[in-house]
Write a protein that binds this DNA or RNA. Sequence first.
DNA 1: CAGTGGTCTAGACCACCTT
DNA 2: AGGTGGTCTAGACCACTGA
Lengths: 245, 245
Amino acid sequence: MTHASRSGSTDHRLPLHARIKDDLLRRVQSGEWPTDVPLPPEAELASSYDSSVGTMRRVLSELTAEGMLLRQQGRGTFVRRASFENSLFRFFRVQGDAEVQPASRILDRTTEPAGPQQAEALGIKTGSDVLRIQRLRLWGERPFLSERIWLPLPEFREVAMASETELAPLLYPAYERLAGVSVGRASEELSVAEADEPLAELLQVAAGSPLVRITRIATTHAGDIVEYRESFGPADTFRYRVEIN
Amino acid sequence: MTHASRSGSTDHRLPLHARIKDDLLRRVQSGEWPTDVPLPPEAELASSYDSSVGTMRRVLSELTAEGMLLRQQGRGTFVRRASFENSLFRFFRVQGDAEVQPASRILDRTTEPAGPQQAEALGIKTGSDVLRIQRLRLWGERPFLSERIWLPLPEFREVAMASETELAPLLYPAYERLAGVSVGRASEELSVAEADEPLAELLQVAAGSPLVRITRIATTHAGDIVEYRESFGPADTFRYRVEIN
DNA sequence: CAGTGGTCTAGACCACCTT
DNA sequence: AGGTGGTCTAGACCACTGA
């Protein structure tokens, strides 16, 4: 019961493996181990938590199954950084040319008071300060997605201040570097809408033509809300793939 | 090494837990235990596979995590039948009235030669016999989804012969009862299309108005393809929700 | 009450990677 | 060679369920 008390806030009635898991998850997310530094070996971890190796293995297996850790026989246990920023590109496809690399261009960053929709999605009060990022994604010259992203302030003030190159090429790693927050999960909702004037111009389509709208709420693995995002793309070349289990 | 040899086809170089898992999965999928009959207790299963309880527990835990089994302390271990036919209704929502129950009406069942698209999706030869089911889904009086479903023959001949009441209310349980095949996973792709004449009439929308198209390939947990499905619904009231992990 | 799964331990042996 | 995770065992004790 020495080091185990480090777990602090977790409920003491919970089984040992659950308390250890909560604490280890917290430490992993706090960045205690960079991705190239192995966690202590399971025997050492076990004794530091006053548990058996078997119980420790259970925790490590679960976190591995959930995608938080990577274990390699003979090498060690490593933190696996969120890699799913690419998922948008798993989902999106332009019919035909798969050769051209997608690019992204940040058009605008402003601080504004949160509207009711953004406030509800982010779990904050209407009127609180939020950072809004407007971004355009392109395949070569052709824009295929217009994104508006809202982040709560002051947590993400470093993202507001950063130079544009610091935000490239991907946003989620930048959140991690600048604000110390890592995205682990997201929930998206798709619907179909009509292009209004500004969107039509941005996406180079006719006003009134059908667009796909994707709203995304991104959270940490622990479930804390990170960002709210609303994206629009031309419906005609749109493909979205989902696996149901 | 007595009963364990029952596993038969699985690779002997695999770890014991993997071989047991393969065999148990096969038995579960073969319908050896109806959903209301518990599997043998873990101790009994362990000894029948000449393994320790710990190894057996590992297998049972994995199958539980994958959604195949349901374990309840004090009651036993049960087979969990595919419950995700309802997932369409998790995804679909008509704005406004959530009171009315969704209904489905089978319009047509015919045997036809597989077209190239169906053949590729089902992994069979173009021109092979397939069963095509045309179905309409409604909220009250309002149709919200037109579905065409293709099933390979002769595997699903019982589904072709069955009365309509035997196919109600849900198709996947009917596949199980009639053809002994249970759906465990599915892959869906969404895109946007325009309503042609017949679809417009079925869905009671104007010809040329935007529709959402969902193509689905459903498989068993083992990965064998069960059905190919193409569904269309009016885009305006459409919502589709996805969790990304 | 008897029987089930849930938790936890202690330790053996093996396969793999690094040095 | 030494250290890592992977596999497997044997058994104790607890919590829950149903008759």
